[in-house]
Design a protein around this nucleic acid. Structure first.
Lengths: 141, 141
DNA sequence: AGCTTACTGGTAATGGATATTAATAAGGAT
DNA sequence: ATCCTTATTAATATCCATTACCAGTAAGCT
C-alpha cells in the first residue's frame, strides 16, 4: 500500500517512513508532529523532527492523511472525508463521518471549476467532556 | 452593530477597531493580517500589527469573521457558513455558499454533543484561473 | 471634568515550521 | 552479492507568523 504509492512517485520505503506511517494512518489519535516524533522515537531514538515534518507533509500531499488546523498542526489518519471536531479547551479532536460530505464537496468543486487536492471540514468549540464541567484530561488550553 | 456587540462584552469602540472592521467585514478579499494592517495604515499610519492581530482575533471570537487556515492566517468577512476554496498556487480564496452546510453542521454537532463556536470548511487545490495555464495575478506560491 | 481601566503601540520573545547540507542507505542494475 | 545513483536522513541554523509584555493613552461612565 505505502510501497505502491512510493513507487508511483519514485520514492523510497524507509523504516522511518513505515514507523511514521504506523503512528498516524488508521489511528484515531490525531497526533501533532511532536507527538508523532515522540512515538517514532521509541524505535528510532535519533530520528529528527525535520524528518517527521517532511514525511507527514508528503503523506498529506498523497492524501494518506489530512491536516487539521488548530493552534498546532495535527494529523488525521483517516482517509475518507469527515468532519473534525476540535475542542478549544482540551484540544482533543474527534471525527464525525457523514456520507453527504462527499456529495457536498463534489458539488461545490464542480460549480466553481476547482481542482480539489485536499479538504478540511472543521468545527471548533467545546467538546461534551469539557462542557460537562469535568477537568480536562491532558493537553493544554 | 459593532457598537452593540462591544457593549454586550464591555468592550470599547475605538476608531482603530472601526477601521479594521471596515477592512474585513463584508469584504470578499479574504485579507491576511498583514493586508489588513496595510489597509488600516492608510488612515492610522502608526497602528501596530499587534493591535490588528488581537482585534481580528476578537472579531473571530464574536463570529463577525471567520479564520481561513492556509500557510498564513487569513480572514473571511462573511458571516454565514460557506465553503472556502483555497488555491495552493496563487493562494486566492473564493467563497461558495451552500444552504445545506448549516444543516450538516447542526446535525454533526448535535450528534456529538459538541458546542460549536466557529467553523471551517475548506477545499484546497487549484483554482480555475491557475488551471487554465495563465499566470497568477498576485500573492505568492 | 475626573476616574477607571480597556485599548494601543512598540518591541521583545516564542516556537512551529522550513531551508540547508553532508552523510547515509534504499532500490535498481550488473 | 556488489556497485551506483540519488532520494532520504539527521542536525543545525534560520525564518517569520504569532504572542507576550508593558507603559502610555483614551473610551466611556458618573
Amino acid at each position: 500500500m505505502l510501497r505502491r504509492l512510493l513507487r508511483a512517485r519514485g520514492g523510497r520505503l524507509t523504516p522511518q517512513r513505515l514507523a511514521i506511517y504506523d503512528a498516524v494512518v488508521g489511528q484515531t489519535s490525531h497526533p501533532s508532529v511532536e507527538m508523532v516524533h515522540g512515538a517514532v522515537r521509541a524505535r528510532f531514538p535519533g530520528i529528527s523532527p525535520a524528518t517527521v515534518y517532511t514525511t507527514l507533509g508528503l503523506f498529506a500531499d498523497w492524501g494518506l492523511i489530512q491536516e487539521v488546523g488548530g493552534r498546532v498542526r495535527r494529523y488525521d489518519g483517516r482517509a475518507g472525508r469527515h468532519v473534525n471536531l476540535v475542542c478549544e479547551r482540551c484540544s482533543e479532536v474527534t471525527d464525525v463521518a457523514d456520507p453527504r460530505l462527499e456529495a457536498l464537496e463534489r458539488r461545490t468543486a464542480t460549480r466553481a471549476g476547482f481542482d480539489v487536492r485536499s479538504a478540511r471540514f472543521e468545527l471548533h468549540g467545546i467538546c461534551p467532556r469539557c462542557r460537562g464541567g469535568r477537568r480536562r484530561i491532558g493537553g493544554r488550553a
